[in-house]
Design a protein around this nucleic acid. Structure first.
Lengths: 223, 223
DNA sequence: ACAAAAATATGATCTAAATCATATTAAATC
DNA sequence: GATTTAATATGATTTAGATCATATTTTTGT
């Protein structure tokens, strides 16, 4: 990680929902940081010192299990807030890790300033609350999928999810990460991807995946 | 469901975190409702008209899957807020159902009034946000458990969780609900409960379960 | 109080998906 | 640019847990 210039004060969640008078204060407090691919931005279990906003690049938010196993909880993109899970009523520890999937720059705010921002900007608090509600809905939907859907359906869901995020039928992701996101193993993802390719629902070229028949993929989910 | 008297204006989440001047307004807007055991308070997929606060009784918050299968996301208790998952940025539909596990009374507020309350009481908004953060952490922890822990460990976790909720090593729950909470089937729960009984970690009498050795149960989780 | 429905108990069977094993290829690092 | 490390490919084997089947007990509605 190294420090870099400053951000445009427009893009991130914090700037977008703060009152104009507060933006200057944000400028004073924000730090611009950059991370290389595969670098850890913060680690599950370590104390929360601040909140991050993704400025450029791609980040996975994930939980570790032992040495080998992980679960990817979310992929974050430009503008997204990172580290807000630490704001609960319990101990202030990150409950997830964040790792750069490509070279990434983020804005960083220490916790005290972020909490001050919440006090000053009711709109920000409200939006953040709404964002939590959305994430909670999604987490619980995924929980249900893990319990009641088979891997192939979960893979279909994951692919559509990632496609929606990228706003493109084509995107790039490792099988490993896909497995951690769908809540299964590499081998199982490999086999089910093969099936989707055979059925011509997707096309694959290296790490690049293209969704060919969104409709049919969707049918796997409502089963 | 039938309407009943009014509540004490002290217990619920809304009253607890609103400024004193607002309490009168709450009194004017709140409705006291009562539900019999097994009655549905609200149903997944139906439009959100308001927010509920559990005043007395016990409620399960759950997602349906097809006709037979469910996943219990949370057990709610006195004071707890219900229906807040519907406050996300998307369509205002309940994403879960709430069903009374015993005779229950709740306070009800229409959505407009609740949103007004949020505007008037920054403290309430902040507390609600914190509550979301906690629930999100918990949901994601459970997701990880579903992916990486076996049923026996998840059952141990569920038992400890419920015990913590009731603030008692003894509590009452159907095997069916236990299965839906641990994300597995009745039969598997039955068998694993037997094992715990054999190992003398718990004692069971009808629907009543007593945790005998909390320490040892906990060990199952950190595996 | 009684019939119908739901929950529980328990064994037998089946299967999806995890694990293991081993090449091959691609990517990062010094 | 060579070497270590990580990701991918693919078959074989194992296993946890779901499903099925059926009997008994407990609840609940009328």
């Amino acid at each position: 990680m190294k420090k870099a210039g400053s951000c445009d004060l427009k893009t991130c969640f914090l700037c977008q929902f703060s009152i104009p008078e507060w933006i200057a204060a944000i400028g004073d407090h924000k730090q611009h940081l950059s991370y290389k691919k595969n670098e850890t931005i913060f680690q599950e279990g370590s104390p929360v010192k601040g909140i991050y906003f993704l400025y450029d690049g791609k980040v996975k938010v994930h939980k570790q299990w032992g040495a080998e196993k992980e679960l990817i909880v979310r992929f974050a993109q430009k503008g997204d807030i990172l580290g807000h899970r630490g704001l609960g009523s319990g101990e202030r520890l990150y409950t997830v890790s964040a790792t750069a999937l490509e070279d990434t720059t983020v804005c960083y705010t220490d916790l005290a300033f972020f909490e001050a921002s919440l006090k000053v900007n009711p709109q920000l608090t409200l939006k953040l609350m709404q964002f939590y509600a959305d994430e909670l809905q999604e987490a619980e939907r995924k929980m249900r999928n893990l319990v009641h859907m088979d891997v192939k359906s979960r893979l279909a869901d994951a692919l559509l999810d990632i496609s929606r995020l990228h706003n493109d039928v084509q995107f790039t992701i490792s099988r490993q990460d896909l497995a951690a996101f769908a809540g299964t193993t590499y081998e199982t993802i490999y086999r089910n991807l093969q099936e989707f390719i055979q059925e011509k629902l997707i096309a694959v070229d290296g790490k690049s995946i293209t969704i060919l028949q969104e409709k049919k993929l969707k049918k796997y989910i409502t089963l």
